[in-house]
Design a protein around this nucleic acid. Structure first.
Lengths: 153, 153
DNA sequence: GTACCTGCAAATCTTTTGCACGACA
DNA sequence: TGTCGTGCAAAAGATTTGCAGGTAC
């Protein structure tokens, strides 16, 4: 399994579909088709996908899987620490593998998303902790603003 | 009218209900009861209210005003620059007078909201602009994290 | 008088939940 | 075999929209 980050309460960061299925079995859960396919989709594709996106990709391989099952499985994977969700402002939540999560800058005009490094938030994180005792999680909510292209107009 | 902030594209920052109604009339709009009462509620109360909250307070004074009218009027006030909305993560959007807007830190465990000064974001804002050409708006999306009380548990 | 605004109902979009059936360990 | 998971339908919560009638200017 991958390294566990020091500062985040990540329970586990498995690197493969089978490792996650083993974790599920180990805690009394079952390795079903819908879970296997969802994990394949998550490990196989890019980040930034909504539940609807993931549901569509899962259904392409296993047509009987219902969107409500996708939501339930995403919830469980999130409880296990394998998946995280993030709010981008308007529009639905996006889901990613926890091991690939990172902060986002999102343009409030055109919706463009920029991947930001955690370091961008270092100063804010330290200051918020010192001033308010508040431990910033820069990945859970995007940072809103205006991208350079929109600013030029 | 109040001073206009330098760095934000704020169209106007009126200080009273009547000033806003004058602005509405000046642009061909009408000073209706639902608009007057909504403005009274906005100027009278604290920030951080959802459309539902505002609708309830408006209805207390003018029972016939429908929630859809509140949404429509909030949208128009936002286009005028009088009101802004902000996303707090889970849950509905909150609305405030633009002149009273400020950044928020929101605890992802208990939901506690902390008012933050704009200066907290100075370093992030400068760095994001330099690195990505991205002009951060720290007020439009809250910053997620864990408050000191929840961290102690 | 006429454009603008409103109430109401219904639609939309995202997510959650209840329930009875089906399948993994 | 018994529990856990699933599909389906329906509900829930937030917001938007179409329309016909009402009102400010």
């Amino acid at each position: 399994m991958g390294a566990v980050h020091g500062s985040h309460a990540i329970l586990a960061e498995p690197d493969t579909v089978d490792e996650v299925l083993d974790m599920i079995r180990a805690s009394g859960g079952r390795a079903t088709t819908s879970r296997r396919v969802l994990l394949e989709v998550l490990f196989g594709g890019s980040g930034h996908r909504t539940a609807e996106d993931l549901g569509r990709e899962v259904a392409a391989r296993a047509p009987e899987v219902h969107i409500s099952t996708v939501y339930r499985n995403l919830d469980e994977l999130e409880r296990m620490g394998v998946v995280t969700h993030a709010h981008m402002g308007h529009g639905p939540v996006i889901y990613q593998l926890a091991s690939r999560a990172h902060p986002h800058l999102i343009c409030e005009r055109c919706g463009t998303r920029i991947h930001a490094p955690d370091e961008l938030f270092g100063h804010l994180t330290r200051t918020a902790l010192r001033s308010f005792g508040f431990a910033v999680d820069p990945r859970h909510l995007a940072i809103s603003g205006v991208c350079s292209q929109c600013a030029d107009r």
